[in-house]
Amino acid sequence: MHVEGDFHVRSARTLVWAFFRDPATLATCLEDPHEIHATDATHFEGTLTAGVAFIRGTFRLRGSYASETPPNQMQVTLQGSGMGSGVDAALTVSFAEGSEGTGVHWTGEIKMSGTIATVGERLVKGTVDKKVTALFEAARVKLEPA
């Protein structure tokens, strides 16, 4: 499924870039229980317990940053596995310098496979979309200067 969106914050682009570039910081935008840490300069891993209502599971996450052109663009790939399923995301996040801060635009594909895709897609597709939106919204709030 395709996800896409954007926001604008009154923070400097380098700051915004740094926020997104640090998995630990970015992880603070997740509302679901999680534990995420960097394993090297471009990789991170951890766990995330997520779902919709009572359909919840713990996913093992592995992610990486790639094709970085700081502070313009980065590609974040994420592989999650849990509940007999795989959730694979590849997002391109772009940062545009504006007169009053930074415009953030994200676009990418999220693929679900296994049980979730075959049994639960009807139920989780909307959730995934919402969670991605919520993540970026949380980032926006945190990045907005007080």
Binding site: F54, I55, R56, G57, M83, G84, T115, I116, V119, G120
Partner: peptide, 10 residues
């Protein structure tokens, strides 16, 4: 059914 599919694990 959801528990058997392990989608729900209350």
């Amino acid at each position: 059914a959801m528990m058997k599919l392990r989608l729900a694990q209350p």
